[in-house]
Structure formats: structure tokens, C-alpha cells
Amino acid sequence: MEWLTPDILTEPVGLSHFLAVGAFLFVTGAVCMATKRNTLGILMGIELVLNGANINFVAFASPYFREDNLGLDGHLMALFVIVLAAAEAAVALAIALNYYNNYATIDVDKANELKG
């Protein structure tokens, strides 16, 4: 049974594992934002970024890992982030649709009117 139970599966996970997952999602989202030409792709990247951050909040609020955790504040913060993400998604989607309406494209590289 020893081979079935390597250390990695028997040892409990700590805070940093969760932070690492959050960081990974965050970076993936950021890179997604930086590489996708599709407006909606960028939106998806944003969602990922927010999710990664949210995992951080939740992890810091978790009672399993530290005695001095964030507790209720972390949970509530995570909730607000979710709500704001939803709101952001709605507005961003509306903007994207508007952009599509006006320019008949959703390629953000075409949306460079603010170019100096």
C-alpha cells in the first residue's frame, strides 16, 4: 500500500497550495487577456483573473490552515468579488456587443481609435 500512498497524497495540503492555484489561474487569465484578439476571450481572461484572486481570499479565510485567518471578512470579500465580476461581465459584454454593432467586428486590435 505504500506505493499507493506517496507522501504527496498523505500529507495535508497547506495554504500555499491554494495560493499557487490562485496564482496560476491569475496568470493564465492575464496571459489570456494579453493574447486573445477576440473581445469575449479577453472577458474570459478577466473572469479567470478574478477567480484566481478570489481563491486567494477564500484560502486566506480558511480555518484549516492558519489560526489567524481572515474569517468572515475573507468570505464576504470573495462574495463581493463574485458579484462585481458578474456586474463587470454584464457591462463588458454590453460594451462588446455595442462595439460589434458599431464596427461589425470583435477584434480588439481593430479598436485602436485611442491610438496617439
Partner: peptide, 21 residues
């Protein structure tokens, strides 16, 4: 993104008692 990830991971595992306390 890789450098950011490295940075963040480094920061994550530099948390005090990063392994389960």
C-alpha cells in the same frame, strides 16, 4: 506571464508556514 507566475508562486510559498500548519 511566466515571470509573473514565478513571482506569485514564490510569494505564495514564502508565506509563513506555507505547508499546512
Amino acid at each position: 506571464g511566466g515571470s509573473l507566475f514565478a513571482l506569485l508562486t514564490q510569494a505564495a510559498f514564502s508565506v509563513e508556514a506555507w505547508h499546512s500548519t
